[in-house]
């Protein structure tokens, strides 16, 4: 059910699991990743809406290097009410009903069925929240799409502004744009890519790039404690 509204987006469920990667002890565990993603954008002067770590893996069957969901942190944005559909219209009601159903089902999968009668979903599910949720189902072949290209070339990509997002040959960038994002940044790190998204236009600066490299410096030998 958790499918992107855009039909052209490649959606593949992969079984990659960063917890299986013990090359550097707890450095790769889920809590550590979540903390690093939060550290990146919670303390930032810029208004980043979310941070995602795309984890590289190798698919032996297809002999392909892939990037799949590693972890993500959704911080939110000032204008959470931005939606594609106009509130009150049939389309809006249908979209919200679908999103809320998906969220309720996910909630019950994780927490079990609600016994209190209280609605576990509450407010509307915004386009940016939905974009983030749908991202969990996606993966990229190395070299394809903004995250795949950043990983393949080792060069960060920084796309800011509606026109730039629309003209980028990457389905994810276009999906981001129609979901209200205005800036998309992909930074290659040791074994994956850190992606940052914002509903505001943030122009390229070395500050956040350096911070990503510092926070996700997988080459650091710190005894596996995570630093």
């Amino acid at each position: 059910q958790l499918q992107p509204s855009s039909s052209a987006t490649t959606t593949t469920i992969t079984t990659n699991n960063i917890n299986n990667d013990t090359r550097n002890g707890s450095f790769f565990n889920q809590d550590s990743l979540q903390q690093r993603l939060q550290l990146l954008i919670d303390g930032s002067m810029e208004s980043w809406t979310y941070a995602i770590f795309w984890q590289s893996s190798f698919e032996p069957v297809s002999n392909t290097s892939m990037l799949g969901w590693g972890d993500g942190y959704y911080r939110g944005c000032e204008d959470e009410k931005k939606t594609l559909a106009v509130p009150g219209t049939e389309e809006y009601i249908a979209v919200q009903a679908h999103r809320k159903n998906v969220l309720r089902e996910l909630n019950s999968l994780i927490s079990g069925p609600s016994t209190s009668g209280e609605d576990s979903v509450g407010d509307e599910v915004t386009d940016t929240e939905w974009f983030f949720l749908v991202s969990m189902t996606q993966s990229f072949v190395t070299g394809i799409g903004l995250p795949g290209m950043a990983f393949f070339t080792g060069v960060p990509s920084w796309v800011a502004g509606t026109d730039q997002l629309v003209s980028t040959p990457c389905e994810r960038a276009r999906h981001a744009q129609v979901s209200g994002m205005q800036t998309l940044v992909c930074v290659p790190v040791g074994n994956g890519v850190v992606e940052l998204g914002s509903t505001e236009i943030i122009f390229q600066n070395s500050g956040i790039l350096n911070k990503v490299r510092l926070v996700f410096n997988f080459d650091v030998q710190d005894g596996g404690g995570g630093g």
Binding site: I13, T14, T15, N16, N17, I18, N19, Q30, Q34, Q55, W69, G70, D71, G72, Y73, Y74, G76, E80, L103, L106, N107, L109, I110, G122, D123, E129, F132, L133, M136
Partner: peptide, 26 residues
């Protein structure tokens, strides 16, 4: 067959927790 892979499950838990916090705070 309906199990959510571990990494996604952990991310979902965090997302839903934070979402609840945001709703309470607004």
């Amino acid at each position: 067959s309906r199990a959510v892979p571990l990494a996604r499950k952990a991310s979902l838990v965090k997302f839903l927790e934070k979402r609840k916090e945001r709703m309470i705070n607004t």
